[in-house]
């Protein structure tokens, strides 16, 4: 366990003015969910390629730069591996059908992510939670306002934790200690410490106080 690689940090939204950028976030997420559902049932190569072509057209319509593709690298590797397996097990047609279908969904997700600001996506989720909160029993459990805060907090915290881990790895290296235990545990302890201080900040800024009353 010597080499550690960190994938793309957050911040995949790429501002723009295209039709895709301007489309409501809720609509885009709904279409993405619909596409995912359709692809789950598509096995034939031609319809799958058709879907992929449709998504690729959306990509062009949004005029996204190539760097928006960074986010799909990981899944691309998995898809190639599974595609190779499928080719071997069931022939090229089945392999193309599966890889094209799944690629369509993955690419569509990349398009939605790149064209929609985070807060709009969160606003959609909060609207969904508001609807849930009106359901009699769930209403006691769901607090949409603090959910939005929690989502933003996750986005804010990921880079911090990547820094914390990097710092812990550097410290371990400086002391000549190797292996994950030398940096993993310090990282975890600092992570919990960070969470405790963040809790103090949430409390001091009175954020849950207003979530409650509004």
């Amino acid at each position: 366990m010597s080499r550690v690689r960190v994938a793309t940090p957050l911040g995949l939204h790429i501002p723009g003015t295209s039709v895709v950028h301007r489309a409501p976030a809720g609509l885009k997420l709904a279409l993405l969910a619909a596409l995912g559902t359709v692809v789950a049932f598509v096995r034939e190569p031609l319809p799958a390629l058709g879907l992929l072509g449709f998504v690729a057209a959306t990509w062009l319509l949004a005029r996204l730069p190539l760097r928006a593709l960074r986010q799909v690298r990981g899944v691309a590797v998995l898809l190639v591996a599974l595609g190779a397996f499928r080719w071997w097990a069931a022939g090229p047609g089945a392999a193309v059908g599966m890889v094209a279908g799944l690629s369509a969904v993955v690419l569509a997700a990349a398009v939605v992510t790149a064209t929609t600001p985070t807060d709009e996506i969160v606003a959609v989720l909060v609207r969904g939670l508001r609807a849930l909160a009106r359901v009699p029993l769930l209403g006691r459990v769901v607090v949409p306002e603090s959910f939005a805060l929690a989502v933003a907090l996750v986005l804010r915290t990921v880079p911090t934790l990547l820094d914390v881990a990097q710092g812990a790895r550097d410290a371990a290296r400086a002391r000549g200690v190797r292996g994950p235990r030398a940096w993993l545990l310090p990282t975890l302890l600092r992570t919990v410490g960070h969470a405790v201080r963040t809790g103090e900040a949430i409390h001091a800024r009175g954020l849950l106080d207003t979530a409650r009353t509004s």
């Binding site: 994938a7 997420l29 960074r70 986010q71 990981g74 998995l78 569509a108 992510t113």
Partner: peptide
């Protein structure tokens, strides 16, 4: 929600 937080920087 489409944020790239799953394994390998994917999401959605």
């Amino acid at each position: 929600a489409g944020l790239p937080v799953f394994a390998g920087g994917t999401g959605g």
